[in-house]
């Protein structure tokens, strides 16, 4: 369970986030949507423990992130951030528990559709595949919550749809809380149980939308279109 209360984050003179409240229940898929520069990545970095200085209370399972709470959180960054010198398997092992066997890691790789690439180097993979290695690495960490920072933004439209399917499948099988930061309104509505809309300058929550659409979903579902419209309205577009 992720809990953010009154989060305010300043960088020197600029305020990135102000009074952000937001929770994610166990197993929930939450999308955080906002325009570029609204501080949505900052929110994620605070949750991951990468931004130690902030005001407010941010906890993971009731443990403050600046006091070890972020240890239960895995992150998939916008770029895959793989070690170029290590094989796919070794990249995933980096985040896995010390006693993880090759078989367990290969199992994860299979789950993200990378069987047969265990000993490949990241340089030999396509962008979509590299991002799936990053996803497998996040899963290997067995996190309470998996945070994804616009992980599909650098991919072409077709690959993106494919990756979204992988993400949903994985999310179902591991029952982790997922927080997906994105600027893609369609993606947020299609994937999430709940959409948190951040407005910009300074970044603050302008709307929270429950997406009550059963899964598997049709991208063209009327109700999803309504959700998209509401997000767009909240963003003032």
């Amino acid at each position: 369970m992720l809990d953010v209360q009154n989060l305010t984050k300043r960088y020197d003179d600029t305020i990135a986030l102000t009074d952000v409240d937001f929770t994610a229940a166990p197993g929930e898929f939450v999308a955080v949507v906002g325009p570029s520069g609204c501080g949505k990545s900052t929110l994620l970095r605070v949750l991951a423990g990468l931004e130690p200085d902030f005001d407010g209370r941010v906890t993971v399972n009731d443990t403050p992130v600046d006091d070890g709470g972020s240890a239960d959180v895995g992150v998939v960054f916008q770029d895959p951030r793989l070690l170029p010198w290590a094989t796919v398997r070794e990249n995933v092992r980096l985040a896995a528990p010390d006693d993880a066997s090759d078989a367990e890691i290969d199992d994860l790789l299979e789950r993200v559709g990378l069987e047969g690439f265990e000993t490949a180097l990241p340089g030999e993979l396509s962008g979509g595949m590299a991002q799936r290695v990053a996803l497998a690495r996040g899963l290997a960490y067995e996190p309470e919550a998996l945070l994804l920072d616009e992980p599909f933004s650098a991919l072409d439209a077709l690959t993106k749809v494919e990756q979204q399917a992988f993400l949903l499948e994985v999310w179902h099988s591991v029952e982790a809380t997922v927080v997906l930061v994105t600027h893609d309104v369609e993606e947020a509505a299609y994937l999430a149980d709940r959409v948190v809309v951040l407005g910009s300058q300074p970044g603050t929550v302008v709307d929270r939308i429950d997406v009550d659409v059963e899964r598997p979903r049709e991208r063209t579902d009327e109700r999803l279109l309504d959700v998209r419209e509401r997000i767009t309205t909240a963003l003032g577009l």
């Binding site: 991951a48 423990g49 990468l50 972020s70 240890a71 959180v73 895995g74 992150v75 960054f77 770029d79 951030r81 070690l83 980096l94 985040a95 690495r137 960490y141």
Partner: peptide, 11 residues
Amino acid sequence: ELREVVEVYDV
């Protein structure tokens, strides 16, 4: 970026 990966995954 790699340092952050190390930090996030408590390597």
